[in-house]
Nucleic acid binder design. Sequence first.
DNA 1: CGGTACGTTGAATCCGATCAAAGCGTGTGG
DNA 2: CCACACGCTTTGATCGGATTCAACGTACCG
Lengths: 233, 233
Amino acid sequence: MSALHHTGYDPARVIPLAPAARAPSAEAVLGRVATTIRAAKHEAICHDGDEADAYFRVETGCLRVSKTLSDGRRHVVDFLFAGGFFGLTQGDTCDCTVEALTDTVLTRFPRRQLEAIAERDPATCNMLRRAVNAALSAAQVRSMLLARLSAEERLAAFLLDLAGRTGATRRLPLPMTRVDIGDYLGLTIETVSRTFTKFRTRGWIHLGASQDVTLVALDRLGELSEGGVLQAA
Amino acid sequence: MSALHHTGYDPARVIPLAPAARAPSAEAVLGRVATTIRAAKHEAICHDGDEADAYFRVETGCLRVSKTLSDGRRHVVDFLFAGGFFGLTQGDTCDCTVEALTDTVLTRFPRRQLEAIAERDPATCNMLRRAVNAALSAAQVRSMLLARLSAEERLAAFLLDLAGRTGATRRLPLPMTRVDIGDYLGLTIETVSRTFTKFRTRGWIHLGASQDVTLVALDRLGELSEGGVLQAA
DNA sequence: CGGTACGTTGAATCCGATCAAAGCGTGTGG
DNA sequence: CCACACGCTTTGATCGGATTCAACGTACCG
C-alpha cells in the first residue's frame, strides 16, 4: 500500500497496542482513571488555547480537529474515527479545536493522572509514545500531500485513506461537509465539489444521498494518489 | 547537556525537560549506548525504505530530511540543526531520506538498545515521547502553512522559524539551496527566488554572499507570517 | 578558460481561487 | 401540509498567484 494511505496511523490499530504482551498492563492501569464521555453532533470538546486537562480516545463517531488563523482561514488538522485520539499536547493548552461531526462516544483520561501513570509505568508511556509516533508519520505524509499533490490526487488520497481508516471497503460515510474536506486538503469547496464531479462523471465513484460515497474504481483512484505517493528508489 | 533533547523545533526549551530531576537518569543510561558519527557535506545518513537501525541526534551542522515520489516530485519534510533528531520511526524502516547539507556531527543511538531502554526506563521513554510530541505539534503547524499560506507568508514564516531554531538574531546561515527551500515550502525555485527578491527590494532582508540572509524588518516579516500563523480566539 | 551547478529574471500558461447564481434537502413555523 | 428559509452543494464565468518554459547571470572548480 502506498505511503499516503495506511501510514500506520490507523488509530484503531495503534492504540489497542500492537505488542499485545504489554497491553493488559497498560489497559488495566489506564482503565482505572478512564471515564466515558458523550458529545452530540456539532458539540465542541475543546477549543484551541483552552487548558488541556485531558486526553481522549474516540470510541464511536467522528470528530474534526482544526486550527483557525486570526484572519479566519481555517485548517482541518485531522478527522478522527473510532480509535483516534487527541489531547496529547506538549504545553498545557490545547493546540487545536475539536468538534463532533456526529454523535460521539469518547473515553476521557485526566491529564494529570495519565501523565503521572506514564511517569512511572513504561508500558503506558511506550504505548503513548508509539501512538504519537504514528501520528507524526501520518502528519509528514500529509504535509507532502499538501505541498506537492494536485487537487485530484489529494481527493483520491483522501477517499482511500478514509476507506482504510473507517474499515469500509467501498462504501464510506462522509460525515464532514465540503468545507471541511476543503479545509483538510487545502482546497476550496468549489474545487472539492468539482473534483468530486469529475470522479463521478468518469465513473470512479458514486455519490450517495449527500452523506456517503461508494468507491467504484479503486484502481484508478489508487493510481492517482499512488502515482503521487509511492517512494522512488 | 542531556542526552536526547531538542526536538529541533524549539530545542532548548523542549528537551531540557521540565521536571529536571529525571534528566540525569535518562542521560546516564543513554550515554552508555551512544556513539559519535560524522557525515560530510552531501553525504546521506539513511534512505527512505532502508532498515531503521538507529536514532540520531544532531550535534552540529545541518541536515535535510526528505521524501521523493515515484515521479520525482520531492518534499523536504524538515531541516535539522543542532539538537534536532530523526530515526524514531514506527515500523523498522526509515520513512525519509536524510542527507547532510553541511559537515555534520551526530550522536547515534542503536535502535534495539534504545528501544530496550525505553521499554523499562520511564525517564527515557517520557523524554522520547515529549520529543516526538513536540515534533508532531510542529508538523501540524507546518501543514497549516502548506495548506493555507501564500508564497510570501510561507517564506516569511520560514525565515523567522529558521532564526528561532538556529538561535540567530538577525543574520542567518542558509545552508540549503533554493530547490531545498522550494521543496520545503511547497513552491518552485522560481517562486522562492522571486519572493526573496521582493523582500529584498522592500528592504526587509539583505541577501549576503549566497549562503546567508540578514533579516532587517523583523516586524514586517512577523506581520506576514503571524497574520498567518497566530491563533484566532 | 570552459564547465557545471545554482540563482535570477521575463513571458506565457494553467490550476485552483474567487465571484456569482442557481439547485437541493431538510426542518420549522404558519 | 405546505411555504419558506437556511445550509450545503453544484455549476458557470472570470481572475490571479504560482508554475512552467526559457534565457541569462554568476560563482565556484577542475
